[in-house]
Amino acid sequence: MRIDGTFSFNANPEHVWDVLLDPEALKACIPGCQSMTSTGENTYVITLTVGIAQFKGTYDGNVSIQDAHRPDRYEIHVDGKGRPGWVRGVGKIKLVDAGNGATTVEVEGDATIGGPVFSIGSRFVPPAAKMLMGQFFNAMKKRVEGPAG
């Protein structure tokens, strides 16, 4: 499943990068993040309670940041499972200097999802994924452009 998106930030790439990869910011902005613990450099175990409307589930998983080249690009690898199903995915994230102290963040996500939730409600999954990604970046945007921006 492809999940792509483009988000603009009113801050320079270095600043956006620092916030996007700040564990505290991640924890605050990942929708439904219950806990996030570092297990090494750029790797975390994470517990999420996410979903839409009544379709909510708790997922445990691992998140790692790979191939990080500040402030240009990084990959976020996710591997999680919960009662409603499981997810594995890679998001390739590119930060493009948009000039005038602005940054465009381009996301190319490729996720594999499975389990009962997918078998029964596959029609909801892609829009839900896109919605959650939107929530994440909007939260990040507030953080980036908030006190510091």
Binding site: F55, K56, G57, P116
Partner: peptide, 14 residues
Amino acid sequence: HSLIPALKLRLTQP
């Protein structure tokens, strides 16, 4: 009609 199927499938557990 939306809630009960989701309950029975345990997709939601209020």
